[in-house]
Design a protein around this nucleic acid. Sequence first.
DNA 1: CGCCGCATTGACGTTCGTCAAGTCTAGTGG
DNA 2: CCACTAGACTTGACGAACGTCAATGCGGCG
Lengths: 239, 239
Amino acid sequence: MIKDTIKVACSNCNLRELCMPVGLSEEELVRVDELVASRRRIKRGQALFQTGEKFSSLYAVRTGFFKTAVTTEDGRDQVTGFQMAGEIIGLDGIVNDHHTCDAIALEDAEVCIMPFDRIEEISREVGALQHHVHKIMSREIVREHGVMLLLGSMRAEERLAAFLLNLVQRLQARGFSRSELILRMTREEIGSYLGMKLETVSRTFSKFADEGIIEVKQRHIFIQDAEALKRLVNPQVCH
Amino acid sequence: MIKDTIKVACSNCNLRELCMPVGLSEEELVRVDELVASRRRIKRGQALFQTGEKFSSLYAVRTGFFKTAVTTEDGRDQVTGFQMAGEIIGLDGIVNDHHTCDAIALEDAEVCIMPFDRIEEISREVGALQHHVHKIMSREIVREHGVMLLLGSMRAEERLAAFLLNLVQRLQARGFSRSELILRMTREEIGSYLGMKLETVSRTFSKFADEGIIEVKQRHIFIQDAEALKRLVNPQVCH
DNA sequence: CGCCGCATTGACGTTCGTCAAGTCTAGTGG
DNA sequence: CCACTAGACTTGACGAACGTCAATGCGGCG
């Protein structure tokens, strides 16, 4: 039963700094440890939740990689984000008590289940948690502003460069290389996220490779000239 | 001093159903009335806040019309939303304690200022308010998913049709006509929001007008065939 | 070994952006 | 009252970027 306790204790979790507020007292830590009801494993290709499903919990990614996507009635869909360890999924469900997007595992994954009523309850007692929840939601809003900027005003090369830089930066924050990454998603999923067709994604990768900016081996990407990518995202910043 | 009290009391505000949770007890209403510290008038063209400014409050639009926009270092900007009476502005500032977008009044406006620390404080006591705040943030996230879908996978006509339908639906919820509206923003601002150039916005308006779907008199729009607009947003939904 | 899904590449077409000219309207000042 | 102006809007001609369609390559898995 010690194992059980460890299994769902945020206070011992190596992802704590990513999911949880910092600087909690002993007492607060104990409360916050009650947040995670249990864990759940999701196989690659399986849905953590789907559009229309009743909302009950937020999920913190423990291992693996997800995409979230919205779908129109006529079948088009739009990937709205990719989530990796330490990131929170499910915020879309709060407003109408039902999820409005699908969350699909792109590789075998495990999530911590945090029942939302429990989050609200503990938030009322632990101010730091309350503020943390607000920050997580605000961060998602700001992230989406960035995606809107990307979709609304960038061209294909800029979009893909921004995408790669964002991915590698998040991976770096998790202790991975800042010059090498493995894409967990298909070209089509990248394209859906970035508002371009898979062929354009592929062509743009090839173009970057020709220019010596990256090396592409299927889903394995080596970043050889990060500065060039940054210049692409921010063209002609004078001075 | 009765006037003063009335001036900032949410409980008497005709926008209450839009901003505030419903079904509060007497006691809770009294607490929630403490949310709004004061009001502020903003002249057309003026900023309610700007990128980089310290975050302290959320704002509820009382009268008037706003746009929010993010800007890149190289000067491109992207309108991220248009806000009308009863809608909340400023959620972007929570995560980093500084605003990450500009909020500009598109016509003379008035907002209720709700200091965020006070929101958090009262939220801890009034569960309905806490949940309401979560819903507002979740709604914004879901709205942005919709914009991403629009920007990522729709063509110009579909985007503009979706935009018009969305505007008129929100105006209708505020008691305005569902077939007539006045645009408070320029073609360029519409274009920025929808990821297209002002010329394309103008051409698409003209095309709709030619087809008898709408009538355009500068910023005055009459919707003559709402069904046609809906069909444009959702092309070929069979059955 | 052969199949299947994913990725790459080429040829061609469409949509939308760019550039430029011209119109309309509201606001200003004579 | 009217002329003038500035900003917003419309429209046309043209081109670039990206989508579409199709053929082919590649790698992993049964």
